[in-house]
Structures are given as structure tokens and as C-alpha cells.
Design a protein around this nucleic acid. Structure first.
Length: 318
DNA sequence: AGTAGCACCTGATTGC
DNA sequence: TGCAATCAGGTGCTAC
């Protein structure tokens, strides 16, 4: 399942292959993947066709390509152009991938939902959005200012965000993340801490796997109500989130070749070394106790019943 | 306002 | 063997 490290690996792999390319043709192979586009697939295609992909940007698990228009005037001055007012946004859901093919493209994979034909230097190139379980989507949407006026996402220097990304908090690896705000968010409300970590409006990029990993590292029981977490514990949780994400990114970023930008099925995903997720009944790497497993907030959750015992919560006052 | 729960979807796995 | 139920996952939406 693509979480922040996987999506960042996709973003950084994609950028050198597609930025600056013009979209010369659009094939929507499955209409439901543009379900968030108000005007349907016709509007999607019309908004993308002829536009230049200006960048590949990301906040949390959300990706977008600012759409710029290459004008004759702009071309005379060596390139850009019109500041992007619209973006092609994409979310990988739980199984989405982007793949790039140069030259004569193969038949689209059965799970290919959208194929963009690009005008790449030296010949044709296609960008496929492949998504087996169809939780992912693409759409075009307007860009709007960020709430703090700073650059809206990794890979972008613009203080703007696509509409569907505007309500998402900065992510765990964002240098502009407001730690105090996140720590306050992790300590607020009756929801259990596992659920709060998955709330993309507190801090974004965390999915089910890294939520379990971070709580294991911080030794916090996933059922612990947020409002019982001390400030020090919340700081530890945030530090653990950053740590597991950074380590995963360091691993995922090394195993991609240029033309096959993978997210899920291949080495990036399976080479994760996980201490908690998926290890129900196996010994804890710290204490050897068998890890527990249950559904928390509708999500499969794994933890060490010995190391993460702090369920006997009391309201803390620090 | 904050929280809970469901819909969305497909393929792999498990149970009868 | 065949079919049905279950599970996995993130987000958007609706209903308390």
C-alpha cells in the first residue's frame, strides 16, 4: 500500500521523465477513475490535452502535476509560460502505479485506467495510470493558495495546492511541518491514537502500515485515547513517524530504473523491514513477546502487548 | 464540531 | 470442485 515513502519514490522517479512534456492524447480506459471530475471524462480529457506537465508535486500521499500552457510568446523566451491555475491530481489509493514507456507503447495493462501520450524529446512516450483495486483516481482541478503562503508540496515551489489537497496537513517529511500543531493534534479528542495517526488533516502521509510501525517504535498502545497522550509521548510518536518514513524512503528510492516506476508489487514494497505490521504472533524484536493483532478503527492493527502496555491511561497534565 | 460508519472495488484467501 | 464469505486498503461522504 503506497504511503508517503512509496509516493515520494514515485514522484521523484516520475519527475525527470515527464516534466516539460506536452500531453498529446488522452485515453480514459475506465470512467470510474475520473469519478471526482465534476464534468466527467470529457472534461478531464479536454483539460489535460495540449497542456504541459510543469512539475510533479506531492503532499502526503497526494500527487499532482501543475498544468502549464506553452505559448508561442513563452517559447520565444525560452520556456515557461503561464502560471498554473490548474493541476492534474492523482491519488494512488491502495494499488495505484504510474508506468512510463518509451517508443512504441505496449498494449495497456488490463488494470490500466488512464493512458496519457506525451510529446517527449526524441519520440513518443506514454504515462499509464494502473490501479488494480480502483481506489485511486485522477482529476483536473483548480489550484488555490496555501493557508500559510509557503510552498504547497514537495517538488513544487508554488504557494498553491489543488483543491482536493488543500485540506490535507503538511506531511511528516515536510520541512515546513508545524511540530507544535501536530503534537497538539495527536493529543486531542477521544479517538484512539492509531486512528488519529491515520487522519490526514493532523499530519499527512501515514497509512496503516507505518502507523503500526511508529507506535511500536514509540511504545504507545494503538488503542490509547489521544487525549491521554502526554506532550513528551506525542513528541516521541512524531519522531518515530519521521524515523520510519525516512528509513523506508531511503530503501524505496534505490530500486527503480528509469522507465518502470513501480509503487506496489515490486521491490520497494516488499523490501520493507517491518517490526510490527503483519507480524501477529511473531516475537517482538525488542522483548520477544508474541505480537498482538486486532481490528482497531476498522483497520488491521499489530502491536507488542508487553512493550506497548500503556493502555492504563489517565489524563495527563503536562 | 467531532466522531463513527459506510461506500467504493477487485483479487487472493479461507470456509463450507 | 465450486461457490460464497471474508479480508485488505485510503479517502470521501453522510449521519449522528
Amino acid at each position: 500500500m503506497p504511503e508517503l515513502p512509496e509516493v515520494e519514490t514515485v514522484r521523484s522517479g516520475l519527475a525527470p521523465l515527464v516534466v516539460g512534456s506536452t500531453v498529446t492524447d488522452v485515453e480514459v480506459l475506465r470512467a470510474s477513475c475520473v469519478r471526482l471530475q465534476a464534468g466527467g471524462q470529457g472534461e478531464f480529457s479536454a483539460n489535460v490535452l495540449g497542456m504541459v506537465l510543469g512539475a510533479v508535486a506531492r503532499r502526503g500521499k497526494f500527487l499532482w502535476f501543475p498544468l502549464v500552457l506553452k505559448t508561442a510568446e513563452g517559447a520565444r523566451h525560452g520556456g515557461v509560460v503561464v502560471p498554473p491555475t490548474r493541476a492534474l491530481s492523482a491519488h494512488l489509493g491502495m494499488s495505484g502505479q504510474f508506468r512510463v514507456f518509451d517508443g512504441e507503447p505496449p498494449e495497456p495493462h488490463p488494470h490500466c485506467r488512464v493512458r496519457l501520450h506525451l510529446d517527449a524529446p526524441g519520440g513518443g512516450r506514454v504515462l499509464d495510470f494502473v490501479d488494480q483495486r480502483t481506489f485511486g483516481y485522477v482529476l483536473t482541478e483548480p489550484m488555490q493558495p496555501t493557508s500559510d503562503g509557503f510552498a504547497g508540496g514537495h517538488g513544487s515551489t508554488l504557494p498553491t495546492l489543488p483543491r482536493t489537497v488543500a485540506h490535507i496537513a503538511r506531511d511528516a517529511l515536510d520541512p515546513a511541518l508545524d511540530d507544535a500543531r501536530v503534537i497538539a493534534g495527536l493529543r486531542r479528542g477521544s479517538r484512539c491514537i492509531k486512528h488519529v495517526l491515520l487522519d490526514q488533516t493532523v499530519v499527512s502521509g501515514i497509512g496503516n502500515i507505518y502507523a503500526d510501525e511508529a507506535l511500536w517504535a514509540a511504545r504507545i498502545h494503538p488503542r490509547r485515547p489521544a487525549q491521554t497522550i502526554s506532550a513528551a509521548q506525542a513528541r516521541n510518536v512524531l519522531a518515530a513517524v519521521r524515523d520510519v518514513m525516512a528509513k523506508a524512503l531511503a530503501r524505496g528510492g534505490t530500486s527503480f530504473d528509469g522507465l518502470y516506476v513501480d509503487v506496489n508489487g515490486q521491490s520497494g514494497y516488499f523490501s520493507r523491514n517491518l517490526a510490527a505490521y503483519g507480524r501477529a504472533g511473531k516475537p517482538c524484536h525488542r522483548c520477544g513477546a508474541p505480537l498482538a493483532h486486532d481490528r482497531i478503527g476498522g483497520r488491521s492493527t499489530h502491536w507488542c502487548p508487553r512493550c506497548q502496555r500503556s493502555v492504563a491511561w489517565t489524563l495527563s497534565r503536562d
